[in-house]
Nucleic acid binder design. Structure first.
Lengths: 249, 249
DNA sequence: AGCTATTTTTGATTAATATCAATGCCTTTA
DNA sequence: TAAAGGCATTGATATTAATCAAAAATAGCT
């Protein structure tokens, strides 16, 4: 079985703004989940800093670090997590290329979560003070950042609903479908991908134990909904998975 | 037993900016969970609209309504909720005076949730287009709104952790302690208050059934941690409740 | 005030997932 | 390529909270 890995994540044109090839998309050759104006891209390019690639396991920032920047993922995958009162880890999100992370640091001027690379990853640093300034100068930048924060709120609230109402099957199906959709947005295969995180991370994110995640995935596999080869997954019946995830659309 | 009700919610001075008496705090005589500059208050006052009071059960907005404004609660209590794919309600938050609601509408220009009054409530409408304009003119306004959105993200992520990791006891204790702390911020009793929402709403918010919420509260009552008189609650041992909620601080 | 509908509480049972335990499979490294 | 450590899978049992059912308390209405 040959399955696309996340190292294939380069793509030629931005699906959200086909006018802009990624060679011109200056935010580190990524497409944000927003359609940016040309002016915005140019202005943003002036303040964005491309960092050296992060190795697997390396941190972008940790809880309590001074908040200085938000980050755009260029390649790889990032895990965001918090440490609970009793020292346990709570995964709050997985971030793929084009997604923005670090916005939880704004309120207290310290990051409320930690972010670490699940595999070798490239990120863009967007220094916040310069960005704030830019937001005041360019109306669309401000608007778009409000939208990105609002998207983060919406996705957190979807997770709240998932954790509050859904069974183990529904949670796992939701995650698979969500990753599938995010791959599609980047013009990657929506049915054939690598899960960059461990089963433990998946369980932690979905409020399940490793064992339950493993059992659910085995069962999906027996039911021919997916095909698993360790971290590589193939979605054999996306529509059925969407039904299970109760994504009606 | 005499217990303060939420109609007592007037207070004389803003605990976050004691320089400003609430008579001068122009955002509808409320104190935001931020320290505003005098200039900001004046500017905000120009765009804020005080609406007529909402009756219990009345909606501020519903999922899918065009996004036009964010709202500051002045008095009463508001429940925010979403409707899941299969038509069930998911409560995503309770909002008390001084808190801001509606920010989830920014990303798609439609509200992603609905908001309804749990009791007679007064709200301030902050028309978003005028607010966006103001944010560009007054640096601190922009900064403060970024902070409010970031706070919303943080509190959603705390709820995610609660739903993912905590037992029924811990969840109920957390909610009681959270409401207590929010009352304290408004100079109200932190130990003696009315729960404006039903047990069903509490259960829905905490990912529990009504029956479980009721049982936990009865048990807390037997253990002399709280004293319940239907919607009125007295916290008899806040420190123990904080321990149970695993709020170490 | 009295009647009704709704909400809350309590009890008995069931179902889902966690926990405990063991095995097997990949990956890393010498 | 062999050994070691970590990760994933599978099985047996325990536990928590859900579900089903009914009574008690409260709120709303005339």
């Amino acid at each position: 079985m040959v399955i696309a890995t996340s190292s294939d994540s380069q793509h030629k044109s931005c699906p959200h703004n086909p006018e802009i090839s990624c060679g011109n998309c200056r935010l580190g050759a990524i497409c944000l989940p927003l359609t940016l104006e040309d002016e915005e891209i140019v202005k943003l390019d002036e303040i964005v800093r491309r960092g050296r690639p992060l190795q697997k396991g390396e941190h972008m920032y940790r809880t309590g670090d001074d908040f200085t920047a938000v980050y755009a993922v260029r390649s790889g995958a990032i895990k965001a997590y918090r440490i609970t009162g009793d020292g346990e880890e709570q995964v709050t999100g997985f971030y793929f290329p084009g997604e923005i992370i670090g916005m939880d640091g704004i309120s207290k001027n310290k990051y409320a979560s930690s972010a670490k690379a699940l595999e070798t990853s490239a990120i863009c640093e967007i220094p916040f003070s310069r960005f704030e300034e830019l937001s005041r100068q360019v109306p669309t930048v401000q608007r778009h950042f409000f939208q990105l924060m609002s998207q983060e709120i919406t996705s957190d609230q979807q997770l709240i609903t998932l954790l509050s109402k859904n069974t183990a099957d529904e949670r796992v199906a939701s995650l698979l479908v969500s990753i599938s959709a995010r791959n599609a947005r980047r013009n990657l295969s929506d049915s054939n991908f690598r899960l960059p995180m461990s089963r433990a991370d998946i369980g932690n994110f979905l409020g399940l134990t490793v064992e339950t995640v493993s059992r659910v995935m085995s069962r999906f596999s027996k039911q021919k909904l997916i095909s698993i080869n360790n971290k590589d997954v193939m979605l054999l019946d996306i529509n059925r998975l969407k039904e299970i995830a109760s994504i009606t659309d």
